[in-house]
Design a protein around this nucleic acid. Structure first.
Lengths: 162, 162
DNA sequence: ATATTTGCAAAGCGTTTGCACGGTT
DNA sequence: AACCGTGCAAACGCTTTGCAAATAT
């Protein structure tokens, strides 16, 4: 079955090879922000006739076509996620590496204001929060001792609106 | 004469070699956000018995000691600036590559709030604005046609408070 | 005197690319 | 058929590192 990303590729007139179809599917199925290595692993699991060079090329092509967005959460490797409608930002859990997405209209406005005040038109911005999980404090209950939660070493993400 | 950064090095008990003294001086004199290559160039101008490997090692050491802060403005190379008291952020002029610093207390508070709302304690954050120079609009005068201002290709920076 | 730091060159890492082959339109 | 995409391996740009010589304390 045709994946969401594959549909976008066709719309934009990309030649659909087997490799691109597989990568499109992997991306469509991804709920996280995988790096190229990880995409390659997942793609190769579906079809082993894929080289990592192709993943690099494809991911770059998709980005140029506006299908994908490249992220840099530190750590030296680029990470990718399908382009979405509204802008959102990322909070990286320093404990587990998990990525939480959030939106913040107020912030957006503020940054435009700041840029203008400095004599600039805001073209784009990069915002990443790095945070440590907070033990939820229940009213009327003593907070429990924080558990050592190693978290999974693989990057993944939940989607949250704040 | 002993540079500001050199003083910090001594305070932190670093062994002061000739190379480190030169690099400390270059950093003390820098008003911008140089990358390692640039630091090396400036250091070598003062004392040619310096290798780029030493610059890399020194910059890393200084960062570990809290003397320097590493920045990533995109473009793949790390850039450095002396640690300062108050936090500040950077706006990169996409036209010239120049970096403008600014502060924004409101934003700081907002980001803490957002993190908390998501169940996290804010550990650190990364914020960079990318902007295009705005032609200053003078009241009562028609705006002039924007000049094609190539800007200098070398990165540099002004310090501004907004 | 001894532990650290240095220069050099080689290696590492993520990413890109030249080339000949193979697949899509 | 013509063109574009692919795999492979080599190259790339930035950064780190092993080693033996040099240096700070």
């Amino acid at each position: 079955m045709e994946s969401r990303i594959e549909r976008l590729c066709v719309e934009r007139g990309l030649k659909m090879t087997g490799q691109r179809r597989v990568i499109a599917r992997v991306l469509s199925d991804a709920a996280d922000h995988p790096d190229v290595e990880e995409l390659y692993r997942r793609a190769a699991a579906l079809d082993s006739r894929i080289s990592i060079a192709t993943v690099y090329r494809t991911v770059r092509l998709f980005e140029e076509k506006g299908i994908l967005e490249r992220r840099d959460f530190g750590g030296g490797r680029a990470r990718y996620e399908p382009t979405e409608d509204g802008h959102h930002y990322h909070l990286i859990d320093v404990g587990s590496g998990k990525v939480v997405e959030f939106q913040d209209a107020e912030h957006e406005v503020l940054m435009h204001t700041v840029a203008n005040r400095l004599g600039f038109e805001l073209v784009s911005l990069r915002l990443e929060l790095f945070g440590r999980r907070l033990e939820p404090v229940q009213p009327g209950r003593a907070p429990r001792k924080p558990r050592r939660d190693a978290g999974d070493p693989q990057p993944s993400s939940d989607r949250v609106s704040a």
